[in-house]
Design a protein around this nucleic acid. Sequence first.
DNA 1: ACCTGGTACACAGTAACGCTAGGTACCGCC
DNA 2: GGCGGTACCTAGCGTTACTGTGTACCAGGT
Lengths: 109, 109
Amino acid sequence: MGRQSTEMLKGVLEGIVLTLLSSRPAYGYEITARLRDQGFTDLAEGTVYALLIRIEQRGLVHVEKVASEKGPPRKVFTLNAHGREYLTEFWRTWSFLTERLDQLREEGA
Amino acid sequence: MGRQSTEMLKGVLEGIVLTLLSSRPAYGYEITARLRDQGFTDLAEGTVYALLIRIEQRGLVHVEKVASEKGPPRKVFTLNAHGREYLTEFWRTWSFLTERLDQLREEGA
DNA sequence: ACCTGGTACACAGTAACGCTAGGTACCGCC
DNA sequence: GGCGGTACCTAGCGTTACTGTGTACCAGGT
C-alpha cells in the first residue's frame, strides 16, 4: 500500500500482533498468514519474525517449541502478564491518537 | 507518553501536520505550539521542523517567508494541490488501519 | 532420483522517522 | 546587561518495517 502505510505500521504492528496473541497462542508463520488474510497483503514475513524476537526479548510472551506435522518445529508464542499490561497501554495510546485525529478531521472539514 | 506513542506517531504526524495546513497556512513554531495544546505535550520542536523540510522537499507545500513582529521571519507553509492529494491518500490509509484495529479489538474481546 | 511447492524460521543490510541536544538570531522588558 | 519569549536549524541516535537471502523439512509429481 505504499510508503504511508509502511510508516504508519510502525509501533502499531506490534500492538496488532499482541492483540492476536491475546485471543490465543500462535506461531510466526500463522500470524503472517492471518494478517495477510485480514488485508495486510504486503506484510513481509521477515517483519513478523523480527517483531516476535523483539517482544520475546522484552519478556512480553512465553515461548514454546512445538513439533509440526509438516516442516520444522513451530515457535508458539503465548502472551504473559507483562504482555497483557503492555497491550492495555497500547490501546490507551491508540485511543488517544484516534481521538486526536477524529477531532482534527472534523475541524479540517 | 513513552516509547509506544513515539513509534505510533511515525507516518501519522505527517498526516496531522498536513491536515492542520489544510485548514489554514501556518509556520513551524505555531504548529508545534498548537499540537502541544492539543495533547501532544512531549512533541519535540526539532521533529516538526524536520518534518516540514521533508514535506517541502516532496513538493506538498508552498513556502513563503513572512516578517514577524517578534523574532526572526516566519516560514509560512501552505498546502498545494499535490499535498491535498497526498492528504486524501493519508486518510484512506488511516481509515484502513482503524477499521482493522477496531475489528481486532472486538474479536480479541 | 529430481524438483517443485508449501511449511517454518532466521539474519544482514537499508530506509524512514521521531527524539535528543544542542545552536543561532531577533526582540522587549526589567 | 541579562532574561525570557519568539522563530528557525542541524548532527547524531535508536527503533522499526522492508528487502533479499538462506536454511530445513516434508509431500507429491514426473
